[in-house]
């Protein structure tokens, strides 16, 4: 794998390449379900690639391949040696390699989604790997999580609070979550979803396509 037979080690300004979207968040919050939903909704109109960072095995990649939302070969799995946050933040080499391999094989792509392994609230993507990032929480983790903040909650370009259908069952107050998130995030957007109820994740998909559009306008391949 990853036989990059032409020279594309240098990608100084992102021109001519796809938008790279990081999807991070704690274990079980619905990252993989969101990625599947985005593929389902955006797949027909955009050329996509997905890189998964499983904690072990290739569970997430296999889930996505089985879901049939994207050609299996457009999904690559990266192993992270017990340290999912290292692979998206401190040492992004393997993820960059996977992203570039997808672009090389199937390019030009519009969007490459990098899904992190489930991690803690401090995990964020390096700007060297992801141009935009979504942090996914779920209501069953407790409605105090947005208040606790952490770099994922406060700095992600989009915060998604998933599993809103469970809120009454776990006694989570969505109003409190929205208010606390707004307090720590300022103008950055927050979306509430239930991917179980809306498998297209329509609102998140809208946000992503807007970002892809903006990216392609500012990073088009220069006419030579």
């Amino acid at each position: 794998m990853g036989a990059n037979h032409d020279d594309h080690h240098h990608a100084p300004d992102g021109r001519g390449r796809a938008l790279r979207l990081g999807v991070g968040g704690p274990v079980g919050s619905g990252k993989t379900a969101l990625v599947a939903a985005l593929c389902r909704t955006l797949g027909p109109s955009l050329s996509l690639g997905v890189v998964t960072n499983d904690i072990y095995t290739t569970e997430d990649a296999d889930f996505l391949r089985r879901a049939g939302v994207l050609d299996a070969e457009r999904i690559l799995a990266v192993e992270t040696g017990c340290c999912p946050h290292t692979a998206i933040r401190d040492d992004i080499a393997a993820n960059l390699d996977a992203v570039e391999t997808l672009e090389h094989r199937f390019g030009p792509l519009d969007l490459v989604i990098v899904e992190s392994g489930g991690d803690n609230l401090t995990a964020t993507f390096s700007r060297g790997l992801a141009d935009e990032q979504i942090f996914v929480l779920d209501v069953s983790g407790g409605d105090k999580v947005p208040r606790k903040g952490g770099p994922g909650v406060t700095t992600a370009d989009l915060l998604v609070v998933n599993k809103t259908d469970l809120a009454p069952m776990v006694g989570a107050d969505l109003g409190v979550m929205a208010r606390d998130a707004a307090k720590v995030r300022g103008q950055r957007p927050v979306l509430f979803t239930s991917i179980r109820q809306d498998p297209t994740a329509a609102t998140v998909a809208d946000w992503v396509s807007e970002r892809v559009m903006a990216w392609s306008h500012t990073h088009a391949t220069p006419v030579s």
């Binding site: 290292t86 692979a87 401190d90 040492d91 992004i92 393997a94």
Partner: peptide
């Protein structure tokens, strides 16, 4: 070992 060249994922 902090050289960001992917070594952390190899045992």
């Amino acid at each position: 070992s902090r050289l960001p060249a992917g070594g952390h994922a190899h045992s």
